[in-house]
Design a protein around this nucleic acid. Sequence first.
DNA 1: CCGCACCCCATGGAAATCCATGTATTGCCA
DNA 2: TGGCAATACATGGATTTCCATGGGGTGCGG
Lengths: 215, 215
Amino acid sequence: MDEDCIVFVVDDDARIREALVELLASYGILAMAFSSGGDYMHADKPDMPACLLLDVELPDISGLDLQGQIAEHGHPPIVFITGYGDIPSSVRAIKNGALDFLTKPFSDADVMNAIRSAILQDRADRTVRSEMSLLKQRYLDLTPRERDVLPLVVSGLLNKQAAAQLGISEVTLQIHRRNVMQKMGATSLADLVRIAQRLEIPLTNLRRAEESDRA
Amino acid sequence: MDEDCIVFVVDDDARIREALVELLASYGILAMAFSSGGDYMHADKPDMPACLLLDVELPDISGLDLQGQIAEHGHPPIVFITGYGDIPSSVRAIKNGALDFLTKPFSDADVMNAIRSAILQDRADRTVRSEMSLLKQRYLDLTPRERDVLPLVVSGLLNKQAAAQLGISEVTLQIHRRNVMQKMGATSLADLVRIAQRLEIPLTNLRRAEESDRA
DNA sequence: CCGCACCCCATGGAAATCCATGTATTGCCA
DNA sequence: TGGCAATACATGGATTTCCATGGGGTGCGG
């Protein structure tokens, strides 16, 4: 299918694990198998586009609960597999973001298709996540004052208005503003607005108020 | 639950329809019942926050196919109900955006919970949709030239650069730019950038090129 | 053929922004 | 205590934007 990707298989049935790993190997795809949710969670996993093939019924915690546990952090797309699945479980799984929910017996093609789209998905996700983490890091590098300035600027306030808002002089605000642009790697105000958007920087409402004040 | 909302019930079994309509009435919720997908699609439906309670098995087309048909247009959130559901169907339904997938027998509480969140969802969806349609209408009111100017401006180009890009004078571009702001209802450049974002106006890449040209 | 919408350009002044340089205060930490 | 980061301010000049007022040209429908 594609280079540089790996499939994690979590299933308590050794025969299933082996069958899946073998299937993947026959497609030249790297795989790591785990027999429990805990094993998977505590394992050192390589950092590359991946897919998690997860059995719903596990000895320690259910696959669905595992899904909830790892939901906080970035994690590879999950493809559930199960022998005794029920509809409510499948609904919950997909609602919580699982990519697919396969019931035995499934064909090799079914698994491979699910894995294929999962890997593609993860590739895109990882790109977005790495961009986001870069932006977040840059945001953390801002000084407190610069973090005050950012929302005012991207809300569309004039330097004068933003400065008044903070009770500082316009010149000082311009310096902060300039530093923000530089540190955030923005090449223009438009760029900064989009970056702030992605960081979910809240907007300041006072623009209208300020304007009608003057009117 | 809430005022000003309606539930559409599509089921070929008259008893189910009546039971559901009665249940809803007991909660003071307006309902309209249909016995087939075609009936639902061709009916005149009131324009208010809604929810579609959809049986998977219908005489004319399957509920899942109906979901696909109405996917293009804005439509209320769908809650599937079924007596003979299978996992692949439920997975497909949720993947395609259904809000829930209930299997008989389900409790009144199950239905009502699903409906409650569906209505809330639709309320939010409708707000977003109406905002979007307003923006789209404004965009359509732009002249062709103004539509040329918009992407350049929100890409962060200076007026001078954008003007050069279009082969017109800077003054003319400023006029277009001003008209764009006015027609789009933007109160600031930052605002215009966010509006363009929502309209998925593609960015122009030439900023870097222009800059390194000058360097 | 007249009006109207669209597109184009110029001039000039007011306002805002960008940028560099220089100065000062605070607070923290090695 | 000396250095460093963060915050703040001023001056002044170059650049950019904003806005109003003027003038052209095209093309289309009443």
